[in-house]
Design a protein around this nucleic acid. Sequence first.
RNA 1: GCCACUGUGGCUUAGAGGUAUAGCGUCGCCUUGGUAAGGCGAAGGUCGGGGGUUCAAUUCCCCCCAGUGGCUCCA
Length: 646
Amino acid sequence: MISVDVGEDGPHEYASGISAGEVIKNVHGRKSGAVAALVDGEERDMSYALEEDCKVNPILGDSEKGLYILRHSCAHLLAQAVTQLYPDAKPTIGPPIEHGFYYDFHMDPIGEDELREIEKRMKELVKSNIAIEREEYANDSLRELFSANSFKLEIMDDKIGHDVGSSAYRQGEFVDLCRGPHVSLTSQLRWFKLTSTSQAYWRADRDRESLVRIYGMCYSSKDGLKQRERQIGEAARRDHKKIGKEMGLYMIDELIGKGLPVWLPNGEILKSEIEKFAVETEESYGYVRVTTPVLGKKELFEMSGHLPHYSDGMYPPMKMDDGEYYLKAMNCPMHHLIFSNSKRSYRELPIRIAEYGTVYRNELSGTLTGLLRVRMLSMNDAHIYCTLDQVAEEVESNVRMAQEYYKTFGFEDYDFRLSLWDPANKDKYIDQPENWESTQNHLRRIMDGLDVDYTEAVGEAAFYGPKIDIQFRTTLGREETLATIQLDFAAKERFGLSYMDETGNENGEVFVIHRAPLSTHERFVAFLLEQWTGNLPTWLSPLQTQVITISEKHKKYADQVRESLELAGVRVSVDDSDNTIGKKIRTHRKNRPAYMLILGDEEMSGGTVSIRGRSGSQKKGVKLEEFVSDIFAEISNRSRELSLDE
RNA sequence: GCCACUGUGGCUUAGAGGUAUAGCGUCGCCUUGGUAAGGCGAAGGUCGGGGGUUCAAUUCCCCCCAGUGGCUCCA
């Protein structure tokens, strides 16, 4: 007999050799929802035999661990279906991921029809309710088992004896090299769906074999799957590309080129509202503004380190009669020259140089999408030149500024990330290990002193120094970097930055902070549109008031209303066409004005307006002057809420 | 850049080897209408571009271009 600790009600006695699953069934019932067991803290199959005293807990299908097991098993199910349908296909690796799983196969590319075929076969395998069993092998018999699959052999070369173990999992005729654990029956894998295929390289190495990756999503219940499908639908509804088109914000024309969005009049309004806000804010934080050219000579970018470390991100040079010129990928080199343009005194520091302009980055064509990833980036960029002692305060005030910005814009779902260099990948970074260590530690101390949570990420630094990234989650749960605050220890030497210190000596210890809290206008607008589903706060709305007349008798009054609003600086448009009012409301909804004003006999005689909010709310008989002053206040306060939609 | 899929009037879209649907929008006429589609009519497309196969291609094949989803990369 062995004693098994099952949690709340103390240890139970069982015959030695009983399976973990039997114990869980005995304690938690047949329908516990367990997909595997936690035996002394180790994840095990339900069939795992208990030989000595231990602690056993169920891993529930809807827990994080349980979902990963389900998804992992689902990946095996996929591989079984694929190898049945395509006997020549060689499974490589197939891990669980957030929301689902993928599996990479060495096989000929497949399309949508094949994907549905495979999914159908998976469903059949679920119906057949095949047992999934763990098998233990000695190393050479394991190699024998997978002798036809060079990918599996390669995995064994690397991992056996380390953490993969020498186990395989069998379901019917299909066997996969795997550490497990897995669910015990294919019928436990009901709530999945294959979503897409893509290409991947074996070991993410483009010189190795090209593989077909098949993605799927998988949940523990119908609800989970449905909810994810709804989330995907919601993301489509919030898609900035769709909303941007409806609101006439931007266009992309193939003759201009991909990744080069054009801001249309409505988009330009939105962009300039953001810019106006940033200019005001940064003036109050002591920034000065400059403008620098969009291109510069090769020698400049060699000096800055862009050409050795960032050349992939830059456009090829333009040969001119006096040398080679490059489009700038960043503003910093030119700002450094501005700093050096005059003798600086310690009394002047920190100097904060800001620029609203464009930079140009040669992103791979396949990565470009809408406003989220573009090749011409409009930025509210700035560089702060300060002493080491001043770094902390400047970083802090930038974190604070970012938080203020995001509050106003209504962003809440973001995290800070301390991005560090990767000493194993020295080509990507300036090779000064001591400087990396000291600046990274410095930033870490600053972050620890601020009351914000952050994570650390190796290999995410800029080439010239560590940075604090502000990470956002899109509706689909994908993480994107919105903004960065970067600490640059390299510029001072490369550009010979210096100032006269208190002792009257030239001091070269100038630290540079690069920061762009509002990201690029392109990406920022994409996030804003998603955040608000296009229904932006009034101050940001390209159209703040849409006036709708009931009949042509009211045209004159509508003009009067328009004039009053325009006088107060409110963006207004009048629709006095002879369509019905319902029709007009429907038509104008896609432009997403903050408010619609309905004008008819009642309003005209009383000098009032009838307000229709975005939610469909109606408020009749509001004095025109009252509306004008209310909306004016809402706009000047940059209010997040639409106070008149009630 | 790599892989898969997609590309039909301003927008959404049907279709298929014999030069093509429908709705919205636009324009005109009628309607003067009170909070998410009033009625009638008209215009508008070399079916992404270029080659090829065929008596015939928008439909099949090849090459480009662009979009979408991934890989890689990244603000």
